[in-house]
Design a protein around this nucleic acid. Structure first.
Length: 513
RNA sequence: GCGGGCGUAGCUCAGGGGUAGAGCAUAACCUUGCCAAGGUUAGGGUCGUGAGUUCGAAUCUCAUCGCCCGCUCCA
């Protein structure tokens, strides 16, 4: 068993060498944690999307797909809670390497004065016994008064600093108060940095009074704001779902591990709207359904596991991840969340529009509850790529590097090659390929020995190789060679289409899901 | 952001103050023709970038960018 970190490196260099993934802007030394999908990567990514979209939209009458804009009205993010939830000033202690919320450090410091007051009160209670008048004591005791003045002063300053987003002021305050790290005990602090999850930009060409807009940090809100549009124009009845594939952006402090965590990434999300009270049933349904969809790829069941959330987000009443065994260990691949009516309720509140559904069976209006399924497309790409990349030792002791991609996802479905470059074989091979290319993405290769050409196709994951030889000219048969078994079959040219179709069709996967 | 490791050809890497190397890969030709590694030839790197030290820097120093690992973060 090779070492894990080596495995990720191997995946990265294989991805680059064969045109799956390149570092972005590489000629300018790259841009941190940004990657481009190359000629084969774009195909694989597209096939993953097709698999998802077909499974969601085409296979479910009650699910429809949309494609919402990345820019959204700023109020969207007020309503969703993103504006407030992720706008924290952070500071690091250089000695303990621990990170704190800078405002919390000051608040904790202020808390100490409150503790002092409490202690004074305790003392007073002991001294005066039954005659103790807490209100009067608080108003008159000089120690208490001094502490209270300090608290008022600090709180006042803190709120002014926070209100003005004055990060330097905040650091100055921490230094002035000589606040130390509880772990290292030192006051060796970094500057205070604003951690803002969302990328901001300005709408319109005039800066200043132009409203700040954000690149969406999740695709889900594009679905929620279109809930009424889709429900009404599509005559949708609860339960129904809205699916979407699209980019989202998060300004992560640390983006790492190849394409696993990037600041620009793509999600495949489906929000399923259900009757209140039935959400946990549907949550279980989708949890099961989604892992089956993943396992249908045939990468191996041992790669998948659930991780049920114990600590739930403010909007959820149940949540689980489907985790995948990446080269760096089990990590989240897809999230399934029971989001309650949080999002639609908030949008109703902020927009003033009734985000409700009239249920004829119950004869009443309600805000639907939502089950969300959300796959990281780039993560899925990495999962498929890393689980497929294998170095096999063959019987004769030689090695081959093979990308055993699920055939339905492979960039090229078949490579067509003439045995030699003479005797009209290339022409015949072209003729066969020109027929196949209407249905399948094909590659033609006539250079080097047959064995070498097979290995090349193995390395990029092509499931089939069709070899045109002299016999082909006589009886119109070819050999078709399987990537995984390396076995060849001689078949009629007319049969090629159905043989390949049988192996690479999405249908095979969809039936399992 | 902190700490550690690393950056030389498309990939994997060697070299280590005196004007750039190997294997594989790529391209051409010859040979062969069903599971890589036959022959001949060719292209490709201002050694991540910038500065400093030096007569001279890929090599030493500093800064910077990027990658990997750990910590941290990740509704």
């Amino acid at each position: 068993m090779e070492k894990r970190e080596d495995k990720l490196k191997e995946v990265i260099s294989h991805a680059k060498e064969y045109g799956y993934v390149f570092p972005s802007s590489e000629i300018y030394d790259g841009l941190a944690a940004t990657y481009d999908y190359g000629q084969l990567g774009a195909e694989l990514k597209k096939n993953i999307k097709d698999y998802w979209w077909t499974a969601m939209v085409q296979m479910h009458e009650e699910i429809v797909g949309i494609d919402a804009a990345i820019f959204m009205h700023p109020k969207t993010w007020k309503a969703s809670g993103h504006v407030d939830a992720f706008n924290d000033p952070l500071i690091d202690n250089k000695d303990s390497k621990k990170r704190y919320r800078a405002d919390v450090l000051v608040e904790e410091f202020i808390e100490k004065y409150r503790d002092k007051i409490k202690k004074e009160v305790e003392k007073g209670r002991k001294r005066f016994g039954a005659d103790f008048d807490e209100v009067q004591f608080l108003a008159t005791n000089p120690n208490v008064k001094r502490s209270q003045e300090k608290i008022d002063d600090l709180e006042d300053r803190l709120s002014k600093i926070l209100g003005a987003d004055n990060l330097e002021g905040l650091k100055a305050m921490i230094e002035e108060l000589n606040i130390v790290c509880p772990i290292s005990g030192t006051s060796n602090w970094t500057d205070v940095r604003q951690f803002n999850l969302m990328f901001a930009t300005e709408l319109g060409s005039v800066a200043g009074d132009a409203s700040t807009i954000y690149l969406r940090p999740e695709t889900a809100q594009g679905i929620f704001v279109n809930f009424l549009n889709v429900q009404k124009s599509g005559r949708m009845k609860i339960p129904f779902g809205i699916a979407q594939i699209g980019k989202a952006f998060r300004n992560e402090i640390v983006a790492r591990q190849f394409i696993f965590r990037m600041r620009e990434f793509e999600q495949m999300e489906m929000q399923y709207f259900v009757r209140p009270g039935e959400e946990l049933t549907w949550y279980g349904y989708w949890k099961d359904k989604r892992i089956k969809w993943h396992k249908a790829l045939g990468l191996g069941e041992e790669y998948y596991r659930y991780h049920d959330h114990i600590k739930l987000a403010h909007y959820a009443n149940a949540a689980a991840d489907i985790e995948f065994d990446f080269p760096m260990g089990f990590k989240e691949l897809e999230g399934i969340h029971s989001r309650t009516d949080f999002d639609l309720r908030k949008h109703e509140e902020f927009s003033g529009k009734k985000m409700q559904f009239f249920d004829p069976e119950l004869n009443k209006n309600y805000i639907p509850y939502v089950i969300e399924t959300s796959v990281g497309l780039d993560r899925m790409f990495l999962a498929v790529l890393s689980a497929s990349l294998k170095n096999e030792t063959l019987e004769d002791g030689s090695e081959r590097s093979v990308l055993s991609l699920p055939p339905a996802l492979a960039p090229y479905k078949v490579a067509v090659m003439p045995l030699t470059r003479k005797d009209g074989l290339p022409e015949k091979a072209r003729e066969i390929m020109n027929e196949l290319k209407f249905e399948f993405n094909c590659q033609y290769d006539e250079k080097d020995s047959p064995g070498k050409r097979y290995r090349r196709q193995d390395a990029i994951g092509t499931p089939y190789c069709v070899m045109v030889d002299h016999q082909t000219l006589e009886d119109n048969t070819v050999t078709i060679r399987d990537r995984d078994t390396m076995l060849q079959d001689r078949v009629k040219v007319d049969e090629l289409h159905s043989i390949i179709e049988g192996k690479v069709s999405l249908k095979n996967l969809l039936k399992l899901g």
